[in-house]
Simulated assay, not measured.
Amino acid sequence: MGIDPSADMLASASSTHGVSFVQGTGDNLPLTDSSVDIVTFAGSLSYAKSDKLVDEILRVGNEDVTVVAYDFEVLLNDVLTNLGITPPPSTSSYNHAENFSEFEVLTEIAVHQSRLVIPVTSEQLAHVLFSSSKRFELLVERFGSDNTFDRVVKALGNDRHQEISVDTYYSTYRPN
């Protein structure tokens, strides 16, 4: 079962055989006691972590419940710098590596961080660069508003192969 506080996100969820989606929050899970085998957090723990959330995980989880938090961060500052753009300093307090390490009621099984390097074409890299409104504004400022995408692809080297670095994080826990 997938749980999300946003009705809009739930409306966008793809139906999958055997998986249902309901609206709810981590501090009041719409599940019965001891009914869950695994609880996962995909890029959301930085927003949701609290004592009440951990209490709810322990309430709904069976005695062998596994708790997994995972996230990733696409690293594009070097690409922007190579394009002549100075990336603005981050003002976000979001933590991709957020985990449950400070909760004594959970036993840490594993905490892992690694970097993936994904080969892409210049056009694919440009699509990733343009996926953020902040980066879009920086690219338009640097390359102009006419044919910005094509100009960025050309500056990246047209058919040249590129690489995108992605930091990945996961942590797993079990109740004590």
Rank of each mutant, 00 (worst) to 15 (best):
G2F: 05
I3Y: 09
D8H: 10
M9H: 04
S14A: 15
S15P: 02
T16I: 12
T25N: 12
D27T: 13
D27C: 13
N28P: 00
L29V: 03
T32A: 13
T32R: 14
D33V: 11
S34R: 13
S35H: 02
T40W: 03
G43W: 00
S44A: 15
L45N: 02
S46W: 12
D51R: 03
V54N: 00
E56L: 04
E56Y: 07
L58M: 12
L58S: 07
G61P: 04
N62A: 09
E63N: 10
A69E: 11
A69M: 09
Y70M: 08
Y70D: 04
Y70G: 07
F72W: 03
F72S: 06
V74T: 15
V79E: 04
G84L: 08
P89H: 08
P89L: 11
S92V: 06
S93N: 13
Y94R: 12
H96P: 02
E98K: 11
E104G: 14
V105C: 12
L106E: 00
T107M: 12
I109D: 15
I109P: 09
A110K: 13
H112D: 15
S114G: 08
L116T: 04
E123D: 12
A126L: 01
H127E: 10
F130E: 01
S131F: 00
S131I: 04
S131R: 08
S132A: 05
E137N: 09
L138F: 03
L139F: 01
E141K: 11
R142W: 02
F143P: 08
G144C: 06
N147D: 14
T148F: 01
A155I: 01
L156R: 04
G157D: 09
N158Q: 09
D159H: 10
E163V: 14
I164G: 04
Y169E: 07
Y170K: 06
Y173C: 01
Y173H: 10
